[in-house]
Amino acid sequence: MLDCSAVIADVWVFLDHECDPASRARLQQHLDDCGPCLTQFGIEEQVKSLLGRKCGGEQAPTGLRSRLSERIRATVCEQVDGAAPGEEIQVDGGRVQI
């Protein structure tokens, strides 16, 4: 049995379809059985829908995206003992190309 606070905390994950099928089924079952959570879920769903209508589809201009990507790479390189762009580095146990 899920706690209501856990369900409300995971509402956005549920709405974005970012949880695994078993978690989704548990959340859905709780929402089906719990009126207060279902009400809160409905409010969150409406907020998400409103945000999607008002803010969806907007993308940063290509030039801005390029400049941000370059700056992020440069910052990472500076922080990783002078790594060069395109070099592969170790980060938190994994390998990342910058």
Rank of each mutant, 00 (worst) to 15 (best):
M1W: 14
L2V: 02
D3N: 13
D3Q: 11
V7A: 14
I8F: 09
I8C: 12
I8H: 07
D10G: 06
V11P: 05
W12T: 03
V13S: 07
F14Y: 15
L15C: 02
D16S: 09
D16W: 06
H17W: 05
H17L: 15
C19K: 09
D20I: 04
D20Y: 08
D20N: 15
P21Y: 03
A22M: 11
S23F: 00
L27H: 02
Q28I: 01
Q29N: 02
Q29R: 13
Q29I: 00
L31C: 01
L31S: 01
L31P: 00
D32R: 10
D32N: 13
D32I: 01
D33I: 00
G35N: 09
P36F: 06
Q40L: 14
G42M: 07
G42F: 09
G42Q: 12
I43C: 04
Q46L: 05
V47C: 05
K48N: 06
K48Y: 07
L50E: 09
L50A: 13
L51A: 14
G52N: 08
K54F: 08
K54M: 15
C55M: 13
C55K: 13
E58T: 10
E58N: 11
Q59I: 05
Q59T: 08
A60R: 08
P61F: 00
P61G: 02
P61Y: 01
G63D: 10
G63V: 02
L64Q: 04
S66N: 05
S66Y: 00
R67D: 14
L68E: 06
E70T: 14
E70P: 04
R71F: 00
A74W: 13
E78M: 08
E78F: 04
V80M: 07
V80E: 06
D81T: 00
D81E: 14
G82W: 05
A83S: 12
A83N: 03
E87C: 04
I89N: 01
Q90K: 13
Q90S: 14
G93R: 06
V96R: 14
V96E: 13
Q97P: 03
Q97V: 13
I98K: 08
